[in-house]
Design a protein around this nucleic acid. Structure first.
Lengths: 191, 191, 191, 191
DNA sequence: GATGAATGAGCATTCATTCAT
DNA sequence: AATGAATGAATGCTCATTCAT
């Protein structure tokens, strides 16, 4: 779409990741994006909107990739594994973005409380549907609450990703983590 | 110990939970604590220090209770279950505190990057030691990296607690969640 | 040069002279200059910088006028007399500025100790050069330390100017003071 | 008189000289004097009063010593010389005090404008009386305005003292300065 | 008299946002 | 559309002073 829009988004991710949303100045983002301060307000309603746009932007990417990836696999097992791996891989590839999504977003009080992160729920629903389908296929323990399972899985993956992003000296490779995480979670829910 | 110190901590938890750390004014905390603005600076170096003190304060509590609880149980399995249940129970009982720990703390850039959350690592180590001991006893899969397992467990529990705290209409009871979570995680790691 | 820069300087002189540097609020200066508070920080680093800029600004004026005046006179005697008269005259014409230079500046601890008032020394050097030249021409007592003489002259003129500025009912005319001062100092140093 | 009163005065001189009146905290003075903050208010009305008391205190000393010194000399010339020497000597012996008197006092806006520094005028009057007497004895130029002469003399001495106090590497000895200053001023006013 | 914990008024400075150009 | 100078509301923190003990 608009070239400047994307330039500003990219700059914001960089700046927010480095300084944190609250300590980052709109002027910093403008300078990083090589536009005037005022220009940002032609594309975004305000600073909060910039943060939210980063989120929506990324989630759109995540969602479409995740759907695509899931569709290429046959079995529930493979679908679930592919999903976990994708999540970790995407964050690995976009560490600055990951930092923003993980840390800054949660701190945007308005975001967490007022703004309904519909896209995030769509993301969770991808997992939940896999769980439900697995249960229907008789693969997963039928007594487990899919909602709880979903959150647990997401929490586990996300925590690992967060740690990995914040760690300076990486003490494990992300592929290994994905492998072990999948093994552990799958064993935990299968019948 | 000091009566005013505690009064300010309690007030800060309340105010930070409601308004978010960044939007909360020191004056709000002072009013809530029924002390003068300046009094806060007799007990805390600055606003950040107040947030960090809440964390350290809570972690001390968490840690001592967790250790005590673990010691009352015999088997690794019971210890692990008791730990998970305690974590959820504590956060349930202190929802405002939970909000602060979960949301606001992460946003304090200084906290997440500069400040080494030693107490938090002690907390994680309690889990990790259980995992390692379980592996040595031949109970848990020996190939799993205890560090990864630990983070995954913590992430799962914490995400569940976070959701529960943020949800207005609770869609599940926390005891149920603890039960299912434990079942799932334990099955996932045992031999 | 910049119109707002000068407007702020002028406002600051007025406000500092009236309330004193420490008791003057930046907001007072802004209101006097008819700009927003923040605008001041577009032109000056901080309140201290504003004070220092007033000094540098004035000294530049003083210096260039003093040099010009000195150059128009032939004899050392006339040069010296012109210099003293100019100093008193300038301060008389800019009483508010004089107050700031005399009183407020000295109180800016940073100014007197850290900041090297190079411009002020240039000003002193104008006198010192006259003294030295006078000694070389055999006009002035050769045994007098030019540095001490310079400071003594400056102190005498400045004290008189200070008193005159602070006095509400002027008990003498400045021209008379200039005349007498010159007579006294010149007689004191001539051979 | 009271032992604590003096302890506080001494502490204040030290602290004010080091940090400057405005940047010095009452608590700093209290700590230096080894008393509680509140104690200071048993002896002084407020921070300003502390500064003024230092001034009055010192001026009392200066005045009595100056009177004594003058009385020991016979001729006007000797009296005047003794006076100048005493002024410089006293400041040399009490450099911290000198700093406070010279710099900080002037910045106390209230002091310079509202408070009538009666003691200071008594000090000046000692000089003025010598001048007048000298004129009556036919020693000094009769056309010079004694008031102007007095201020000029005071300004010259004081400026020299100020420079000497502020200089880190002393470029002249104070005795030399006193000698030259006297020679120059005396020659300047004598018939 | 002496203390020092508590007070709360006071203010420099920042920075998201606007708007004339 | 783009700019960036100007705005002014907003707030963390300091510190002189008080007063219960």
């Amino acid at each position: 779409m608009n070239e400047k829009y994307q330039k500003i988004i990219d700059a914001a991710i960089k700046v927010f990741a480095k300084k944190g949303f609250f300590h980052a100045k709109v002027a910093d983002v403008a300078k990083q994006a090589d536009v005037a301060d005022g220009t940002i307000y032609l594309y975004f309603k305000n600073k909060d909107d910039l943060l939210i746009s980063i989120f929506e932007n990324s989630m759109d990417n995540f969602l479409s990739q995740a759907k695509k990836t899931i569709d290429t696999k046959e079995s529930i097992k493979d679908k679930l594994k592919a999903f976990l791996t994708l999540h970790l891989t995407l964050l690995e590839k976009n560490q600055k973005l990951a930092t923003v999504l993980q840390l800054e977003l949660r701190s945007s009080h308005k975001f967490m409380t007022e703004y309904k992160a519909e896209k995030f729920f769509q993301y969770l629903r991808l997992i939940e549907e896999l769980i439900i389908e697995g249960q229907q296929q008789g693969l997963f323990k039928p007594n487990l609450n899919p909602h709880i399972v979903t959150r647990a899985i997401f929490g586990a993956v996300d925590e690992l990703a967060l740690e990995w992003v914040l760690m300076k000296k990486k003490s494990f490779v992300l592929e290994e983590a994905a492998e072990q995480l999948f093994q552990m979670l799958f064993e935990g829910i299968r019948l």
